[in-house]
Design a protein around this nucleic acid. Structure first.
Lengths: 173, 173
DNA sequence: ACCTGAACACCGTTCAAGT
DNA sequence: ACCTGAACACCGTTCAAGT
């Protein structure tokens, strides 16, 4: 006898994102996710292949969220500061989005505005190299900041602005 | 009746490093580590508090290994290229060392030569900010490279040298 | 057509009992 | 004084049985 679904992929991913942020990736269990959407764990397998797939979908949702924010920005400084603000506001989602567990497509969407900006700064030929410089710096900085790796004193805010300033200078003309 | 230990912390950490590199962090189980040193899993708890502590010790051993390599280098380019060579040769160890699961001390030791180099380049006042710029870029670049995140074409080697060149220019005088 | 209980394999960890 | 078997709680995952 056919039965209507009691949950949906959308509800599952949304619940997963909330659990991720409150309990971390380790707390994002199939059981916890199922409970959040009102079913038992085995039912989730009607909607996702396995936990890895669920984690990947959550990573993509986060990356697309970020992409939307970045698309509204202009210039290297705006992009970098918005990325940092987003990362600090959604630490677990940020870590997951850049962990390589999502699709390449979602991350590429988020990176597109950076590429457009470097193209304007250094021209077509060096745009990709320059985007990789900026992206590597920004994501490296944030992963260190979120991990609490800046422990030698000094202002982390100042270090971010210093890096942004030096990179902007290095990519000018 | 006293019994001599059948293994040691050193042997456990060494075995753990080998398992990490061949089977990844997920494969680094207490059981696998115990088997590698010839005891059963519960015996490991005589030497380490729990799996997290073991993982932390392995992260530190890797970071100190890297620190030794970096200490033999001179100049930004030498440091960056040696870091990249080491990261590619010990991918899992690299990821773990920079994951924040080790002690701050071990990573600080590895970072010391970078700080010394930026001090020589930009002076005492900006040395820390500059070291953070370089470190963030290098670790960000490598985490992306190891994750296979550079998929838009172009030469990854060229992108690395481009970044190194632009950063060197940005930190000159 | 979806959901569930029960079961399985596999973790980390504890601890009483062996030597 | 160290090591082990047995046990426990907790995972992810499968599947026959319910509705």
């Amino acid at each position: 006898m056919p039965t209507p679904p009691r949950t949906s992929l959308d509800a599952i991913v949304t619940a997963g994102r909330a659990i991720l942020e409150t309990h971390g990736l380790a707390g994002l269990t199939m059981q916890a996710t199922a409970r959040a959407v009102g079913v038992k764990a085995p039912s989730l397998y009607k909607h996702v292949a396995d936990r890895d797939a669920l984690v990947g979908l959550i990573a993509d949702a986060a990356a697309l969220d970020l992409a939307e924010r970045l698309a509204a920005q202009d210039g290297l400084a705006g992009l970098a500061r918005e990325l940092r603000a987003w990362a600090r506001a959604h630490q677990e989602a940020y870590r997951l989005a850049f962990s390589g567990r999502g699709s390449e497509q979602a991350l590429a969407t988020a990176a597109a505005p950076v590429l457009a900006t470097t193209r304007a700064l250094v021209g077509e030929e060096s745009a990709l190299d320059a985007a990789r410089l900026v992206t590597a710096w920004a994501t490296g900085f944030l992963s260190m900041e979120l991990a609490g790796a800046f422990r030698l004193g000094g202002s982390v805010d100042d270090a971010f602005e210093y890096g942004l300033d030096r990179l902007t200078a290095a990519l000018s003309r």
